[in-house]
């Protein structure tokens, strides 16, 4: 068991004195990120919804990136992956990332195709 803890987050930018302090620090960070998400979700700034990047609104990209950031800190500090060995950490993190990226790509691509079939086909769906 890893009893010693690595106490810095943000690549050493922020260093805590004890593990308990680090936990509260991460909580503050996660709360801020959630507050930003909810704020953006309620206000929906026009700049972010009007423009798209690779077929998706900028706003949605921001949400997804912030979610991954939150997931990173939950896994690294709460599930203390930060203190585990590299090999364990890599096995845990990269396996799902690889499989899930593939799944998402293939399902969304197919769904978009079906969408065009519904749109351009000769069958009416709205009656």
């Amino acid at each position: 068991m890893a009893h010693e803890h690595k106490l810095e987050i943000f690549r050493g930018l922020l260093k805590f004195k004890s593990n308990i302090q680090k936990i509260w620090g991460v909580l503050v960070f996660l709360t801020i990120v959630t507050a930003v998400e909810v704020g953006l979700g309620i206000t929906k700034p026009d700049v972010l919804t009007a423009n798209t990047f690779i077929g998706m609104k900028i706003l949605n990209w921001i949400f997804i990136v912030l979610t991954l950031v939150k997931a990173y800190y939950i896994a690294w500090d709460f599930m203390h992956l930060r203190d585990e060995k590299n090999s364990l950490r890599r096995a845990i993190v990269w396996t799902p990332i690889f499989l899930v990226s593939y799944l998402i790509f293939i399902l969304l691509y197919e769904a978009d195709y079906i969408y065009t079939v519904f749109r351009d086909g000769f069958v009416t769906w709205d009656f």
Binding site: L99, V100, L103, I104, L107, L108, E110, A111, D112, Y115
Partner: peptide, 13 residues
């Protein structure tokens, strides 16, 4: 992930 991806599938559809 399978559930959420299939949600994405239906949504994109």
């Amino acid at each position: 992930s399978g559930f959420l991806a299939s949600y994405g599938f239906s949504r994109f559809k």
